[in-house]
Amino acid sequence: MSISLKNVSYNYKGKYQTVRAVDGVSYDFEAGKCYAIIGKSGSGKTTLLSLMAGLDLPTEGEIIVDGKSTKDWDRNRMRREAVSVIYQNYNLFPLLTVQENIQYPLDLKKVPKKEAEALGRKVRERVDLSENYDKRMPAHLSGGEQQRVAIARTLAQGCKIILADEPTGNLDSTNTRNIVDILCTLAHDDGCTVIIVTHDPSVAEQADTVLQMKDGAWI
């Protein structure tokens, strides 16, 4: 599943002024590849990623996901079935266990309980988490473990486009390497389109293609 940007721009309407966060960006992301988008804070990386995730629509231009503009998608459905996002702060439900967090997207898709449990186990093992983690709460996990739960949730979702916003921002170097390895494996072995927004040059080094942003545009 591919994702293409066609002259995408986005304006933030603040209280006192309007800021152009993304300025006429175009690119075709291919399936089976791992991309890294780098740039300084405020360069528009996260905004671009959020637009690709369908959290809002571009002010100008369009984003094509699986051959269809995000304007034409039911964006809730798009986020359930086509594009999933991993965040720096993991974004796990604090009152649900590891197993329940992983199975949450399956509950939204109305997957039967037994089937959801089996799939949940499978994706948990894929991110190297043992069965002992199933009943644990996110607050009792390390940062690396929480991020692996977030990736397992993405895998359970079954989306072919994975967007990661600073996924290793809170992790040490060992965990960073492990997480990026998992994401690159998903691109290379499962044919997913993986786009990582990062500050970290070591993460960018592991990606197949590196794109650099400044003032909302590619350099």
Binding site: L55, N91, L108, Q157
Partner: peptide, 14 residues
């Protein structure tokens, strides 16, 4: 509100 945002990000409708 973080839970609500997360639900929406995961594709739960308003």
């Amino acid at each position: 509100k973080r839970d609500i945002a997360l639900m929406r990000i995961l594709g739960k409708s308003n």
